[in-house]
Write a protein that binds this DNA or RNA. Structure first.
Lengths: 333, 333
DNA sequence: ATGAAAGCGCTAACAC
DNA sequence: GTGTTAGCGCTTTCAT
């Protein structure tokens, strides 16, 4: 079966015996016509199976009624939640949201963003974009929202205070009697440093240091692979704070498999509060980083920008929330 | 800051003192020009910051070099895996993949699909689309791949045999000494019936029936909410097969919270083999439904269709794989 | 090697 | 009310 080109406005016009302008106005509902004409138009549209080509429309209007969202890894529930938040807000305003997964691969990043950017009225980007590419984004001629610290005045940003989140975690761990905290980070990530700093700063208030480990990927597999090294450290940490919940889950699962008890032998905590965190056994302590709200906020910034034709205003900063659960229960004794 | 329109091919032509046709050929690299001209073009493009508008290009070429993928709920790792598989294959062929989340909301489904379909060369759709909308999809004039049973000859399909998967699960449970199996389904889903049937058919070989329960949503919350009713049933089931892993996890977590031991008191299993399944405690028995491979296969069908200009050929059917884990360990006694 | 011109499907002024 | 026309930014014959 061959794919036939869909009928155009011109064919409808011919079939209905009117001009293309009439058809255009009719399908956009911006004007009424005489009953017979309207009827002929309806007929023609129905029998031809006409469908408007939004692509062609947006060529002339300059707007697409859709936004783009680029994420690093859709498999990470943190990003899935961002998508959810952004999608909800977009749908409410009758916009559609197109998502691309950058696959954590800088190679394809640029071309994926290019392909996306030309098809939308604005862009939300979560990425490890180096600063020079950010210049490129800013010159797209469309509003762009980034997750992170504002890199330049014409790009707005949304983030949740990771320093604060890590600090809260440190206080919680201290209260539970933990003294030897290890941070299992993902050095490539934008948020890694502030989380480590917040944790160190909190622990140092009681004179404790934080040992540092790293995963190769911010995933469950990454956490699992890193577990042995941490558990073998002398002295063994009595708490592990992971870069995110996925890493924490991988670590916790491997620790359990190796016969190390969580939380009795070692406490485990992560960041993001992904949905599965509370269903783990033990339930995973984490810091809620407002993933979904970040997505909502980013989308609202885009909508505002489109209205104002400008990208000014302050960044959006969310407060993280500590979610204490069983995986960091206080040390007994 | 105002958003200025990006420069066009015409401005480049003016700046370089050549015609727009020359610019077009140059940026598409389909022809060489005299060194001076090429140099002037490079200059003009660089100083103006020109970027090609793929939208305009695709108006004339009729192709966009991108595909669309619509999923029911990106928060479900099953769908995230489908995205991964499809994205990988698309990137390999230099296509980009645009994903939309339908939010399990039939209301927005049609308009989201319309917005998506016009921007891509082909579509992969996972949805509970009623049959009349499927006709609509088929008439888009572009290749469409569906997950499920082929509804009409001009639409190709990819699926994994759910009947078989459920049957495998039943044999595994029987071998473990389970006799009173409950199925915690999601009646709205396309796959629900075949999974139930496969399970029933397997259990009936040993003369056992399967009791039926339902979740409102195929999520962890859904599984959690349904747990109490199942555990209160008389006689209490000694195994629960959930519609998918998310539901299974929600159920398992709630059962544990209620003091019911998994797998000693009750076995739990799901479908999909989402990444977190093996990290649960106890690790979750499941049936791998080849999510990622389904995404890959669907994308390959699309690429083939574009090459052949046709949508003929057989459906793709994957074999499910039983993944036995601790959550269905054999009954002791 | 380079350019003129037609046109992809549509919208928006402006006529009538 | 309805039609004419000029593009949106680009590709693609076809001339020169």
């Amino acid at each position: 079966m061959q794919f036939k080109r869909p009928p155009t406005i011109r064919e409808v016009a011919a079939a209905a015996g009117v001009s293309i302008a009439t058809v255009s106005k009719f399908i956009n509902g911006q004007q009424r016509f005489s009953p017979e004409v309207e009827e002929r138009l309806r007929q023609a549209i129905a029998t031809l199976g006409y469908r408007l080509n939004p692509q062609a429309r947006s060529m002339v209007t300059g707007r697409t009624r859709s936004f783009g969202l680029a994420v690093l890894d859709i498999r990470n529930p943190h990003f899935a939640n961002i998508v959810k938040g952004a999608n909800r807000v977009a749908l409410e305003s009758d916009y559609s949201l197109l998502v691309v997964d950058l696959e954590e691969r800088p190679t394809h990043e640029r071309s994926l963003l290019e392909a996306l950017s030309s098809r939308v009225d604005g862009l939300i980007v979560s990425s490890r974009i180096p600063d020079d590419s950010i210049a490129w984004l800013a010159e797209l001629g469309k509003p762009v929202v980034l997750f992170g610290q504002r890199p330049r005045p014409d790009i707005r940003c949304v983030r949740t205070d990771g320093y604060r989140g890590a600090y809260l975690l440190s206080q919680h761990l201290l209260k539970g009697g933990r003294k030897r905290v290890a941070y299992l980070g993902f050095p490539n990530a934008r948020w890694n440093a502030e989380r480590l700093t917040g944790l160190r700063s909190g622990m140092s208030e009681q004179g404790h240091t934080v040992s540092e480990f790293a995963v190769e990927w911010p995933t469950m597999d990454g956490g699992q692979q890193a577990a042995a090294a941490i558990l073998a450290a002398q002295p063994r940490p009595d708490a592990v704070v992971a870069y995110n919940d996925l890493v924490a889950i991988g670590f916790m699962s491997e620790a359990t498999r190796l016969g190390v008890k969580v939380p009795d032998d070692i406490a485990v905590a992560g960041f993001d509060d992904i949905p599965v965190a509370r269903h783990m056994h033990p339930a995973l302590t984490t810091v809620n980083m407002r993933s979904e709200e970040q997505g909502e906020a980013a989308m609202r910034l885009l909508l505002d920008a489109l209205r104002d034709k400008s990208m000014t205003g302050d960044d959006i900063l969310f407060e993280p929330q500590l979610i204490p659960r069983a995986s960091t229960a206080p040390l007994k004794s």
